[in-house]
Write a protein that binds this DNA or RNA. Structure first.
Lengths: 261, 261
DNA sequence: AAACCCCACTTCTATATACAAGTGTATAAC
DNA sequence: GTTATACACTTGTATATAGAAGTGGGGTTT
């Protein structure tokens, strides 16, 4: 039994020496190659969760790169959450943690990116702030707001409904820009101008109302995501508050933890 | 007009020189201090989206640190998504992009972390693979699976419902561990053993069924999140497939883009 | 037996240096 | 006037080196 284990380890060691070398003539930088190599070895199971990676000096000697380059590689793996480095002890492969999973809006972004998408302005007029909008935008009840309603179509089918309240300020050119039907696309793929500082986002589960279902060509009660957003300017004041509605059929968030093949 | 602009720029420059210096006697490393300083200047609006940061050599001279240290700082800011570096042109503050927002399971994790949480095993028995479970786990219909149903309580109130199918394999100790009611907590906060390689996660919106509502002390039709998960071993074979159900009242995902105060 | 110190090993910070590679402008050649 | 070249400036990669700081084991002293 012990011998068999030893054999397996030996085989792995041979594989590692045979397969993994840095190609100095490649366009891929040495540090990127080493990241790829180590990730591959973790993915293959040569290094398993809890295992200690070779020390930095060992990696230097083995791959023929300088200490700083190895350092950089380790830092990248730490940032990716694949390994954890403990000063004085070593660098260890992290076990799976559900809590570290992160979801992004890539899928939602795709709805805008492609050419098949269009934004249709349903409504845009000046209104008075009600309780909830006034609270979210930190203005007095009755203050003037611009209410915007948009429908985002993909392949000529409605998939996203957007409602937004923007603080009415004639001096701010933002409003004109926001009214542009193409502004939403810019919101996702960069370039909202330079007068927005940060945004808070919240995702909740909800069910389509009759009105939403009619617009989205769906049925009332269908499960949907509600992505709420609040934008702030550089004075820390909220500028706009709104939310997207999307039925769960058209959108789901995905994430991967660990190192897939 | 031109003079006023010039004055504003001058003021900013003075502020920057006066406020921001590196304290070499601090425990906080120089690179971390510089990251903090630059982030603060971006947050304050000294550098706004689209603006070019000072070049690396300028930062070196200004803060009295070596080029490599500045390099490291810029890399950190790039990794954080706050700036974008373009070779030959400069480093620029990124505008807000909705699409780059990422959500994590921190809130969900908290439900397990605290002492007030408990896991209650509702059901655990061997069953036969049906169409969907068999497809997800890549086994033949009729193969033996372990079906587990758990209820996660927080402050003695049920908040999470978990259902899971695990491939039945008497040689694998995983099953025994999975049956432990405390295993779930470990799943979130690290240490699932070393025999799981990676996991796929999906979040969808759904509505509580009658059965789920009864268990969660809620009502049927209430909007809820469904977090589906599939774990794979080092052979790339699925090991377990299941999903959490949580009403949207108890959980919502949050994210922030840009640099908040 | 217990406490202490030293040493080898690990990761971490920081510097100085060199060259590669992309960008844009100003100048020279045509 | 147009094109081509050279140059200054930018970020990107890689190396060599020094010391700081944390860990753990072995040996000595108490």
């Amino acid at each position: 039994m012990y011998i068999e284990v030893g054999f397996v380890l030996l085989e792995y060691t041979l594989d590692r020496e045979a397969v993994a070398t840095i190609d100095r003539s490649s366009y891929e930088p040495a540090y990127a190659q080493l990241v790829r190599i180590l990730l591959g070895q973790i993915a293959t199971g040569i290094f398993r969760p809890g295992d200690r990676l070779p020390s930095e000096s060992q990696l230097c000697a083995h791959y023929g790169v300088s200490p700083m380059t190895v350092r950089r590689v380790i830092n990248i793996l730490v940032d990716q959450g694949v390994v954890i480095a403990e000063q004085g002890r070593g660098t260890f492969v992290k076990p799976l943690e559900l809590g570290t999973a992160t979801f992004d809006l890539g899928q939602l972004q795709q709805l805008f990116h492609e050419e098949e998408s269009a934004v249709k302005l349903l409504e845009a007029h000046i209104t008075s702030a009600t309780g909830r909008a006034a609270r979210k935008l930190a203005v007095e009840v009755g203050a003037r707001l611009v209410f915007i309603r948009r429908l985002i179509l993909h392949s000529e089918k409605p998939v996203l409904l957007h409602r937004e309240y923007v603080i009415y300020d004639p001096t701010r050119p933002l409003i004109e820009a926001e009214m542009e039907v193409t502004a939403l696309r810019g919101l996702f793929n960069g370039g909202v101008g330079s007068d927005l500082k940060w945004a808070d986002l919240t995702v909740e589960a909800t069910a389509l109302t009759e009105e939403e279902a009619a617009l989205l060509q769906s049925e009332a009660g269908v499960p949907a995501f509600q992505l709420e957003h609040t934008f702030y300017d550089f004075d820390g004041r909220p500028v706009s508050w709104g939310w997207f509605i999307c039925s769960s059929d058209h959108l789901h968030f995905t994430a991967t933890i660990g190192v897939p093949d």
